[in-house]
């Protein structure tokens, strides 16, 4: 079973990201479960959402405390919330930022992760390009597909199109594809820690 934890702030589509991820996994023929870390938070407050993906029926309902993947949609949370709490040493990290791991002050911690498991993606910039707003959730899902290989980018795109009909869905899908392709191209460079910067 793969367990994913997504961190962000209210209004950034954190819960939606978990839902889309579960829909994409479902499209891939897997079992999936997505749920928010239930809060009454308003815009701007830290929010967490979870997704489990497995080959068999998922029964447990406990919160994800030992994730295989952590997605950080808002880098301002990095030093406020224990976003990496319980993360497997073989896990994956996706961070929305235009800065490097060193600039984020995370190199010491993240350098211990396997090659290609840490992706800093300028997801917000990609969001601005496609949606005129720094929407990072759908680009990060594209990055997730590329980095982990756990779901197909086509399934991510189809989940997005299903959830957001019309041009909004099309633009989000384009953003996800761009982030996906960016991470794939960086992965080919085979750098230890991946800094998927937009050129």
């Amino acid at each position: 079973m793969m367990q994913v934890r997504i961190h962000g702030r209210g209004g950034q589509g954190v819960v939606t990201a978990a839902e889309l991820l579960s829909m994409a996994a479902f499209t891939d023929g897997r079992y999936a479960q997505a749920f928010p870390s239930f809060g009454s938070e308003r815009m701007g407050a830290p929010v967490t959402a979870f997704c489990r993906i497995d080959e068999r029926v998922i029964r447990t309902r406990e919160a994800v405390t030992q994730p295989d993947v952590v997605i950080v949609q808002d880098p301002t949370l990095l030093h406020q919330v224990d976003v990496f709490g319980g993360l497997s040493t073989q896990g994956y990290v996706l961070i929305n930022s235009t800065r490097s791991v060193e600039e984020l002050g995370l190199d010491e911690f993240l350098n211990t992760f396997p090659h290609g498991h840490v992706c800093v993606v300028p997801a917000g910039d990609i969001g601005v390009k496609h949606m005129k707003r720094p929407i990072a959730n759908t680009p990060l899902l594209g990055g997730f597909a590329a980095a982990t290989g756990a779901i197909k980018i086509e399934s991510v795109v189809s989940a997005i199109r299903q959830k957001f009909p019309g041009s909004l869905g099309a633009r989000n899908a384009d953003a996800a594809r761009e982030a996906h392709d960016l991470v794939v191209s960086r992965l080919r460079d085979d750098k230890g820690v991946l800094h998927a910067r937009a050129n």
Partner: peptide, 12 residues
């Protein structure tokens, strides 16, 4: 049905 745990969970 359990609030949030089921009402807000995506599953098949």
């Amino acid at each position: 049905m359990d609030g949030y745990i089921l009402t807000h969970a995506y599953e098949p």
